[in-house]
Amino acid sequence: MSNDLYVAAGGGGDALAALMLCRALGGSNSAPTVASYSWDRYLIDPAPGPRQVQDFVGLRQLTEHAWEVTADSNLAAGGVSGLTVLARHTPARFMVMDPARGAAGLRQQLREVIDHLSVDRVTLVDVGGDVAAHGSEASLLSPLGDALALAATAELPVPTDVAVIGPGLDGELPDDELRNALVAMGADVRKLRIAHVRPFLPALEHHPSEATMLVAAAAMGASGRAEIRDKGALVSLTDHSTDAFLTSSDSVLERNAIAQKLIATESFDQAEAITREICGRTELDHERRKSEMLAHRRTGDPSAEELRSRLREYREAAAARGADFVSFRRLTEVLGLHRYDPTRMRALVGDLAFHELPLCRISLR
């Protein structure tokens, strides 16, 4: 009976997807362990970039460098950690990955967790597939987080795999290109089904993860095109959107030029500088600009009448762009709201909302 450790490549929704994958793989542990960044969207945590251990109160220390997020853990300066949300709504255990000391520091944390919990296999989980990028792709929006997590898994003392779920669902890399690359690596393909995602729908309701939500939507039979992210990328939901490709971490590391350069990094700043040198940018550039812009623009929420007007206008424009669905997360932002509140969103969109998913239909046709 194996004792697996899952590593969420980009934090956020990857941590929740890891629990779904555990079910799909027939995991015997009803409370799997996931190591993840606390790196969340502005709507729940306005601070750009990943959080460090020192940003929390209420963590549980497991080893010298490994800390567990519990249902009672909070961010000291405000905001909400997605890991706390998941700790409150799932039976899993979550270890916060603190990247302050680069890949070397993350690797030390993972090694200590492996030893402390007698882990015999590690699986790095990424929804969308950025982790398998070369690093030179013009459409790659978030090169740093996934590559740093992959670099941290190099030379772990147990076998390590990479699982890419729903290639292309994050709106960054072309899904056909990713699929072909993963097949060339000899990846084994599994499918996430309703039974694998349904236990985690309550957690998904409170966690604004678009890509993982789309995996769940596809598993529950939704098909069509969803508009996601700030710029409204359109991604397609098909029968293949629940595919999970499993391959060796060595194969993915051989493809990812950024991760190769990050293996020996000893600080997050160093990792960011190397990534920017290779790609010309990192996701933190966008996050910092957005945080500063929204901080200056922040006003009160629109009135109920204004929200209904904005919703009508948005639906008309999104339909013209060919969208069938929009996530609650994107809808929150395009309507000019400042806090992610799925209950309020359901009340606003009414029958347009999916019953069990934070997803809105563009029309009721």
Rank of each mutant, 00 (worst) to 15 (best):
E305F: 04
E305P: 00
E305M: 07
E305K: 09
S309H: 15
L311V: 05
L311T: 07
L311N: 08
R312G: 01
R312K: 13
R312H: 13
R312E: 14
E313M: 11
E313K: 10
E313N: 14
E313Q: 15
Y314S: 09
R315L: 14
R315G: 02
E316C: 15
E316T: 15
E316V: 15
A317F: 10
A317W: 10
A317D: 13
A317R: 15
A318T: 08
A318C: 07
A319P: 04
A319N: 05
A319H: 13
A320N: 09
R321N: 11
R321C: 09
G322E: 09
G322M: 02
A323H: 03
A323N: 03
A323V: 01
A323E: 03
D324R: 02
D324I: 05
D324N: 13
D324P: 04
D324F: 00
F325E: 08
F325H: 12
F325R: 07
V326Q: 00
S327R: 07
S327L: 12
F328A: 09
F328L: 09
F328Y: 14
R329F: 04
R330T: 07
R330H: 06
L331I: 07
L331F: 14
T332L: 02
T332H: 00
T332S: 06
T332W: 01
E333T: 13
V334L: 02
L335W: 02
L335K: 01
G336P: 10
L337T: 05
L337G: 03
L337Y: 04
H338M: 11
H338S: 15
R339I: 12
R339V: 15
R339E: 15
R339C: 11
R339K: 12
Y340P: 10
Y340A: 06
D341I: 05
D341Q: 07
P342N: 03
P342C: 03
P342K: 01
T343K: 08
T343V: 12
R344S: 14
M345W: 00
R346L: 00
A347G: 05
A347Y: 00
A347K: 08
A347Q: 12
L348H: 01
V349Y: 10
G350N: 06
G350W: 04
D351V: 09
A353Q: 07
A353S: 13
A353T: 02
A353M: 06
F354L: 13
F354V: 07
F354K: 06
F354S: 11
H355V: 14
H355C: 08
H355M: 12
E356P: 00
E356R: 10
L357Q: 04
P358K: 04
P358Q: 04
P358S: 04
P358A: 03
